[in-house]
Computed example of a mutant assay.
Amino acid sequence: MPAPVRFLVVLDADSTLIRNEVIELIADEAGRGPEVAAATEAAMRGEVDFAMSLRSRVAVLAGVPVTALARVLDRIEPTRGVRDLIDAVHARGGRVGVVSGGFHEILDTVAPGLGVDVWRANRLGVADGALDGSIDGEIVDAAGKAAALREWAAEAGVPLRRTIAIGDGANDLHMMADAGLGLAFNAKPAVRARADVVVGAIDLAEVTALLP
């Protein structure tokens, strides 16, 4: 019989688990990188509705060949200390989840490679071997991130007071509020202002001291 899960750590993906904003890397393939980067920054600051912004940003990706996603994967950079943090969580009997407003097409490779236990993200619409500019299914927004944290905690038998949520953008605030401990990491000012703890260094190994 497996040992009970002692606690749960849930991270955002882009600019948290990894250093990149994946949608910007894909937009580079469409020649729209700067335009999408500006829209992403506004969404992460909470200045615009996340779901509406995501749909508009994904729309400009129409026509990018699916084969280009391999080049995007080659550009992914895990955040410093991420493997140290995940190893420490596992060593202490915890579980690691990642919930992202980004995309399964990238996270399905990155997450297991880093030792993440469970993950959830958006899926890009595809037609005739290219992105069609749509999102397939329900968008993972702020409410979706909080729902994932609660769902994974329930599945693991972990009370919410023994959960930690780590994020950088406005769409992480709901899950950070629901978690026992909400950590702002590499975060926008609005997120730092509402977090329980602000991690100053861009090094996820710093979080290990806060693990139960």
Rank of each mutant, 00 (worst) to 15 (best):
residue 1 M to L: 12
residue 1 M to P: 10
residue 2 P to L: 07
residue 5 V to S: 00
residue 8 L to G: 02
residue 9 V to L: 15
residue 11 L to T: 12
residue 12 D to I: 14
residue 13 A to D: 06
residue 16 T to Q: 09
residue 16 T to G: 09
residue 20 N to P: 09
residue 21 E to S: 08
residue 22 V to S: 01
residue 27 A to Y: 01
residue 28 D to I: 00
residue 29 E to A: 15
residue 31 G to S: 11
residue 31 G to T: 07
residue 33 G to K: 15
residue 35 E to V: 13
residue 38 A to S: 14
residue 39 A to V: 03
residue 47 E to R: 12
residue 53 S to Q: 02
residue 53 S to K: 03
residue 53 S to H: 03
residue 53 S to A: 15
residue 59 A to N: 06
residue 59 A to L: 10
residue 59 A to W: 02
residue 60 V to M: 12
residue 61 L to N: 07
residue 62 A to E: 14
residue 65 P to S: 12
residue 66 V to E: 10
residue 66 V to W: 09
residue 67 T to F: 00
residue 67 T to D: 14
residue 68 A to Q: 11
residue 69 L to R: 06
residue 70 A to S: 13
residue 70 A to F: 01
residue 71 R to T: 12
residue 73 L to V: 09
residue 73 L to W: 01
residue 74 D to S: 15
residue 74 D to N: 10
residue 75 R to S: 15
residue 75 R to W: 06
residue 78 P to N: 12
residue 78 P to D: 12
residue 80 R to W: 00
residue 81 G to Q: 07
residue 82 V to L: 10
residue 86 I to Y: 10
residue 89 V to N: 05
residue 91 A to Y: 00
residue 93 G to Q: 11
residue 93 G to L: 08
residue 93 G to A: 08
residue 95 R to L: 15
residue 96 V to N: 02
residue 98 V to H: 05
residue 102 G to F: 00
residue 102 G to D: 02
residue 106 I to A: 02
residue 107 L to S: 12
residue 107 L to Q: 12
residue 109 T to G: 00
residue 110 V to L: 05
residue 112 P to M: 11
residue 117 D to L: 05
residue 117 D to M: 03
residue 119 W to Q: 09
residue 121 A to Q: 09
residue 121 A to Y: 02
residue 121 A to D: 09
residue 122 N to P: 13
residue 123 R to Q: 11
residue 123 R to K: 08
residue 124 L to Y: 04
residue 124 L to S: 08
residue 125 G to I: 13
residue 125 G to D: 13
residue 125 G to L: 11
residue 128 D to W: 00
residue 128 D to C: 07
residue 130 A to C: 05
residue 134 S to R: 15
residue 134 S to P: 04
residue 134 S to N: 09
residue 134 S to V: 03
residue 134 S to C: 05
residue 135 I to L: 15
residue 135 I to R: 10
residue 136 D to C: 05
residue 138 E to P: 14
residue 141 D to R: 02
residue 141 D to E: 09
residue 144 G to C: 11
residue 144 G to K: 11
residue 145 K to H: 04
residue 146 A to P: 09
residue 147 A to F: 04
residue 149 L to H: 07
residue 150 R to T: 15
residue 151 E to M: 06
residue 151 E to T: 14
residue 154 A to M: 04
residue 155 E to A: 14
residue 155 E to H: 03
residue 155 E to Y: 01
residue 158 V to Q: 04
residue 162 R to W: 10
residue 166 I to K: 03
residue 167 G to Q: 10
residue 168 D to A: 09
residue 168 D to K: 03
residue 169 G to P: 08
residue 170 A to E: 07
residue 171 N to Q: 13
residue 172 D to G: 11
residue 173 L to T: 15
residue 173 L to C: 03
residue 176 M to T: 11
residue 177 A to F: 01
residue 178 D to M: 06
residue 178 D to F: 01
residue 179 A to W: 00
residue 181 L to D: 02
residue 182 G to Q: 06
residue 182 G to K: 01
residue 185 F to T: 12
residue 188 K to E: 04
residue 188 K to C: 07
residue 189 P to Q: 10
residue 191 V to R: 01
residue 193 A to E: 15
residue 195 A to F: 01
residue 196 D to C: 00
residue 198 V to S: 06
residue 198 V to P: 05
residue 200 G to P: 03
residue 201 A to R: 15
residue 201 A to H: 08
residue 201 A to C: 10
residue 201 A to F: 02
residue 202 I to K: 07
residue 202 I to E: 11
residue 203 D to F: 12
residue 204 L to M: 14
residue 205 A to D: 04
residue 205 A to L: 05
residue 207 V to T: 08
residue 208 T to E: 05
